[in-house]
Simulated scan of single mutants.
Amino acid sequence: MTEAPHNQRKMQRTAFTCLGIVVGMVGLAYASVPLYDLFCRVTGFDGTPIVRDSNTSQVVDRTIAVRFDANVVPSLGWRFSPEKPEVKVKLGETMTVYYKVTNTSDKPATGIATYNVQPDLAATYFSKLECFCFTEQTLQPGETLESAVVFYIDPRLLQDSDVKNISSITLSYTYFPSKAGKPVAEVTSSTTSTVQ
């Protein structure tokens, strides 16, 4: 009879272990998106530019073309474009480029911009000092907003054999409808019309 309490304790330990694993996996599933986003922002992985507070780099006599791509999800009803399609920038040089976004619809709309850098491997060296990305914007019908992106390309790019010979980098932004500060793929017209 002493075997029954022993088996019961083993079964309880097994049940608690399984429950702990399930709870841990659910927690990891919820944490995976913000952790992945943080990882990408810190390392430049998957074309995510690094965000910096200041530029302490030396300017190097090597020029790279930076192209600007501007996209809008069609359901948002905005027109979005950079002031220039391309600039030439020396490595380490701080550059400011302006984008203009206009609400072409007849209703107020709220959007949020996401971004990436191509080629992916160059994102580690594309450092943003100021950006309008991930900032929710509400535009009234016909309203236009001008926003700046301030960036530099880290000269350490020249030490990376995978990207040291690239001649151009593309910074691509996409505006999505926004709900509660998060981009959404589609917003119904009733949701869009109630945005203040």
Rank of each mutant, 00 (worst) to 15 (best):
T2F: 05
T2V: 06
N7Y: 09
Q8E: 13
K10C: 08
F16V: 00
F16H: 00
I21M: 06
V22Q: 01
V22S: 15
V22I: 15
V23N: 00
M25A: 14
L28K: 05
S32Y: 10
V33F: 03
Y36P: 03
Y36N: 05
C40L: 07
C40Y: 04
R41M: 07
V42A: 06
T43Y: 02
G47L: 07
G47R: 04
P49T: 07
P49C: 15
V51G: 07
R52P: 14
R52W: 12
D53H: 13
S54A: 15
I64N: 02
R67Y: 12
F68V: 08
D69N: 08
N71W: 12
V72R: 01
V72G: 13
V73F: 04
S75T: 15
S75K: 12
W78H: 03
F80H: 04
P82V: 06
P82T: 05
E83K: 09
K90F: 06
L91D: 00
T94L: 06
T96N: 08
Y98W: 12
K100H: 12
N103E: 14
S105F: 04
D106P: 06
K107T: 07
A109W: 01
A113H: 03
T114E: 06
N116E: 10
Q118A: 14
D120R: 06
A122V: 09
T124D: 07
F126W: 14
E136I: 04
Q137F: 14
L139M: 03
P141Q: 02
P141F: 05
E143C: 06
A148D: 04
V150R: 15
I153A: 03
K164D: 09
N165R: 11
I166C: 10
S167K: 08
T170L: 15
L171T: 03
S172G: 11
Y175A: 09
S178E: 04
P183V: 10
P183Q: 05
V187D: 11
V187M: 12
V195F: 10
